[in-house]
Amino acid sequence: MQKVTEEPSLYRHLEKMPVKEILTHINEEDAKVHLAIQEVIPRLTELVEAILERMKKGGRLFYIGAGTSGRLGILDASECPPTYGVPPDWVIGLIAGGDHAIRNAVEFAEDSETQAWKDLQDYFVNDQDAVIGIAASGTTPYVVHGLKECQKHGILTACITCNPDAPVSAYADYSLEVIVGPEFVTGSTRMKAGTAQKLVLNMISTTVMIGLGRVVDNKMVDMQLSNQKLVDRGTKIIKNTVGGTYDDAKALLLEHGSVRKAIEAARQ
């Protein structure tokens, strides 16, 4: 297949460009990302609704990927517990090569046709869950064969890729093909493709968490109070919601341990 993600950059002789010109052109390319995502919002809507249906019944959301794509999935999954106060097994990110691959390249890990399914089985993946494969190229064996095996077992599948008619799409019930075009540095899919994947993952997890009731109005009422900045944020949310002084709001927060519980207590 002809991979858009591997097509030559629209720019030549990058090493001869002044710094400002490099930065300007990278920004011009990045501006194309949100337009590409806009094209997949109808399909993305269907996917999120399907994920919500499963998670409301106790299902989980898995991301599988390799390299940059895998790291982006892990990043999104790891941010759900502190942001929304959910258990760490609601959204799970898996990367080819295991945790070592988060910081280091693991040779040939993405070429395995069996490892993704083994990794998913460690979490007893089942037909109540949803699995999203993330692969800029759309050809990564770890992802392609992981989704293929999921479909055999009746598990909802989706993919985020940046090539049209990619092999991974054949095994995705919901294929999100975000076509951002050639990279500024030819083939460097950590750039536009990675940005597109990150934005789509943000959209999926945020919308899912809102749908699961983890946001009230526009506030993260279940966030973990893991540092003083978040205690301050939580205090201000309480103060702005129920009134009173900052000190009263902070005392409520520290007494009840969460923004949601503090607001509920103040309203009783």
Score class of each variant (00 low, 15 high):
100 H>E: 14
178 V>P: 09
75 L>I: 03
111 D>Q: 05
165 D>T: 00
267 R>D: 14
172 A>T: 15
113 E>W: 11
86 V>Y: 04
23 L>Q: 06
91 V>D: 05
238 I>A: 00
139 T>G: 02
94 L>H: 10
121 Q>F: 04
103 R>L: 08
119 D>T: 12
129 D>M: 07
5 T>F: 04
9 S>T: 11
64 I>W: 05
244 G>R: 07
252 L>G: 08
246 Y>V: 10
92 I>L: 13
215 V>E: 00
93 G>I: 06
5 T>D: 05
79 E>H: 02
237 I>K: 04
19 V>Q: 06
129 D>P: 02
20 K>G: 13
187 G>D: 07
116 A>M: 10
116 A>T: 10
242 V>R: 02
91 V>N: 06
121 Q>E: 13
78 S>T: 01
257 G>F: 14
202 N>L: 04
253 L>K: 09
144 V>C: 11
54 R>V: 14
13 H>G: 05
133 G>W: 02
218 N>G: 01
160 I>P: 06
20 K>N: 14
247 D>G: 00
65 G>S: 03
162 C>A: 14
90 W>R: 04
131 V>I: 10
230 L>S: 07
260 R>G: 13
268 Q>D: 15
92 I>Q: 12
22 I>Y: 05
248 D>W: 11
42 P>C: 09
65 G>K: 02
1 M>H: 01
118 K>N: 08
257 G>T: 13
244 G>S: 07
165 D>E: 11
250 K>T: 02
19 V>M: 08
3 K>C: 01
203 M>G: 08
18 P>S: 09
109 A>R: 14
205 S>Q: 02
8 P>R: 09
128 Q>Y: 01
252 L>P: 03
117 W>V: 01
69 S>D: 02
42 P>S: 12
